[in-house]
């Protein structure tokens, strides 16, 4: 997702750069004002139709499948309470099964915090805010096993960057065995 977002942005940004460079190298010449105005009006009409006609339905389509309800989120979920405070995470479970829907119930005892989940390669896989007075329910399905890191993603004071926790994501059989042994 992130690399796709970067690539899309870069392509569009290079398009804007190309437009500015083209105009910049043609600025010092003289040209027919009325003719240029006519071309710009045509270009503007096309751009507006493109941005409205394609862009608006696209943005609507991107919100159609609700982004806060992840793919594969079916069946009985496991609920994990995740209480935050300056500067700690207190999770009801630090071991979770892969491929199972999880609902993280995010709360805070003091200020706003951000519950950011990083995988083993330190790629951010999901996040939601924890805010005073509310319980935010973050739905997620871990796609691969491994040691995940919870990092704070809302600035919360002097030890914000050190507010970390670990979640061990294991296969469902190991998870079930460990649960029954407890």
């Amino acid at each position: 997702m992130q690399q796709f977002a970067l690539l899309t942005s870069l392509i569009l940004i290079f398009g804007v750069i190309a437009g500015f460079l083209y105009v910049a190298i043609n600025t010092s010449q003289a040209g027919d004002k009325a003719e240029i105005q006519q071309s710009i009006n045509t270009l503007r009409t096309k751009t507006l139709w493109l941005m409205i006609g394609v862009g608006v339905p696209l943005t609507l389509a991107l919100a159609y499948r609700w982004p806060h309800a992840p793919e594969g989120f079916q069946g009985e979920p496991i609920t994990v309470s995740a209480e935050s405070g300056q500067w700690y995470w207190n999770l009801s479970q630090f071991e979770l099964p892969v491929g199972t829907p999880i609902v993280f119930e995010l709360t805070t005892v003091d200020v706003n915090h951000g519950f950011g989940v990083y995988d083993e390669e330190f790629e951010l896989v999901t996040q939601a805010q924890a805010m005073p007075g509310y319980t935010n329910k973050l739905n997620y399905v871990f796609k691969k096993p491994g040691l995940y890191t919870v990092a704070c993603l809302e600035y919360c004071g002097v030890a914000h960057h050190a507010m970390l926790a670990e979640i061990d994501v294991v296969d469902p059989v190991t998870y079930a065995n460990n649960q029954s042994n407890e």
Partner: peptide, 30 residues
């Protein structure tokens, strides 16, 4: 989400293209 997208339209399709039209072959010296 929709508003974020729509907000960008005037910047790109109106302000930027208007600037292009005013600059292009205007004889302006940089």
């Amino acid at each position: 989400q929709i508003g974020s997208y729509v907000s960008g339209i005037p910047v790109i399709a109106i302000t930027t293209l208007a600037l292009f039209g005013y600059l292009f072959k205007s004889g302006a010296r940089w």
